[in-house]
Simulated scan of single mutants.
Amino acid sequence: MDYAHLGRSGLLVSKVGLGCMNFGDATGEQEAFTVMDRAVELGVNFFDTADVYGGPQRPDMEKGFGTSEEIIGRWLKKSGRRDDIVLATKAYQPMGLGPNDRRLSAYHLKRACEASLRRLQTDHIDLYQMHHVDRATPFEEIWQAMEQLIAEGKITYVGSSNFAGWDVATAQLKAEARHLLGLVSEQSLYNLTNRAIEQELIPALKHFGVGLIPWSPLAMGMLAGKREGEKTVRRAALGERFTAFADRLNAYEALCSELGHTPAEVAQAWLLHRPIVSTLIAGSRTVGQLEAAVEALNVRLDADALDELDRIWPGPGEAPQSYAW
């Protein structure tokens, strides 16, 4: 396993992280235990979840809410592996029907963090992430809440998710005014088919020393390649989106064949070649999927391969040069 610093922090995380969103939904508890056991064996030390994961993300559903954290908590208690992992979770999504059971108010963050700690059966969260930007709550209030949680030993680092570049900049400047470390990571949608964050978000992350954690590295399975005797994974479900990318996908899969690696390996290896990426989220439902993600660490893409990937999947360029002289 390869490790990298989480942004500018001193914390080392595995370059491939385990995404636990499927636990309790697509992946049952016993299989989730097996996946987590194997992750530790492979050297994966970054486990990512959210308070809302584990089932339908609606507070009026009777089951599934908080299940991913509960499964991880029971595994931590059974395995005794708490000190072997960097545990990350998130808050923002609705966790109840009340008006304050969501978003990033100090009121909600305190209660959301304490509820996550109970479900995870631990006394601290290593990386506490804002699951989405909340422009109705000032960052002065958010950082006050985070500072209190840090002082109480309930969280160690703070990250963001699904922020725009100017959200990162605003958050970081407000944190610096309070003499806080601020954000160490940003978790965003990023893969070969969707490179929009290269325009403004990634430049902001580089400027402030915030590490990138890409989610959906395989573009909901679009980049997973072909299974023998089947169409490309999830192509039928992707419908018009696959049709729009059909020519690119054919060219991409032909390139992967020339390189001698599966499309899934190349897609994840491309992310691992980006210096801004601290760790990528492998949302593995099974041990096999986890092992395939880790295998991407062994893929080396030379300059020609990277240039060809840019030709097939061009990025937007960096602002403002991408749209102005």
Rank of each mutant, 00 (worst) to 15 (best):
A305R: 04
L290C: 03
H5N: 15
W325H: 13
D83F: 05
Y53T: 10
L301A: 03
E69S: 11
A305S: 15
G182E: 03
L297V: 11
L297T: 14
L306S: 05
T170P: 04
I155L: 14
K206I: 11
Q187H: 09
E230T: 05
S160W: 02
L306A: 03
F46C: 00
Q187K: 02
H131E: 10
L127R: 03
T279C: 15
L271I: 11
N191G: 13
D101R: 04
I312A: 07
G159F: 08
L259G: 08
A136S: 15
Y252S: 02
E308I: 05
A164V: 05
Q268K: 14
L192C: 06
H124K: 13
W166L: 13
D302W: 06
A219V: 04
R235P: 00
M36D: 01
V233Q: 13
L255M: 09
A244D: 11
K15T: 11
R82W: 12
G80I: 05
E69R: 11
S79L: 13
G19V: 11
A246P: 03
I142E: 03
L117Q: 05
A324E: 13
K154M: 12
W75R: 07
R81Y: 13
R82H: 12
Q129F: 09
L309S: 10
E318G: 07
I71R: 01
A254Y: 08
R311Y: 01
S284T: 02
P320E: 13
L218N: 02
G19E: 06
A303N: 13
L201E: 10
G288V: 03
H273M: 11
H5Y: 14
M95V: 04
P138N: 14
G28W: 06
Q121N: 11
K77F: 05
V35S: 04
P94A: 12
F208M: 05
E152V: 11
I71A: 01
L271N: 04
L249D: 01
P314T: 03
G73L: 11
G317K: 12
E70R: 14
S188Y: 07
V210A: 09
G221S: 03
G211H: 00
M61Y: 14
L42V: 08
V35Q: 04
L173D: 10
G229R: 12
V158D: 12
D304K: 15
T170W: 13
A175F: 09
A112R: 10
E308F: 07
R178W: 09
N298Y: 12
T286F: 06
W325P: 14
D126G: 02
A175E: 07
L238W: 14
E176R: 06
K15Q: 13
L309A: 12
G159Y: 05
L109Y: 06
D25G: 03
M1I: 10
E228D: 13
G159M: 09
L272G: 01
Y3H: 12
G153A: 14
Q199R: 15
D304E: 15
V52H: 00
V299P: 01
R103C: 10
L109W: 04
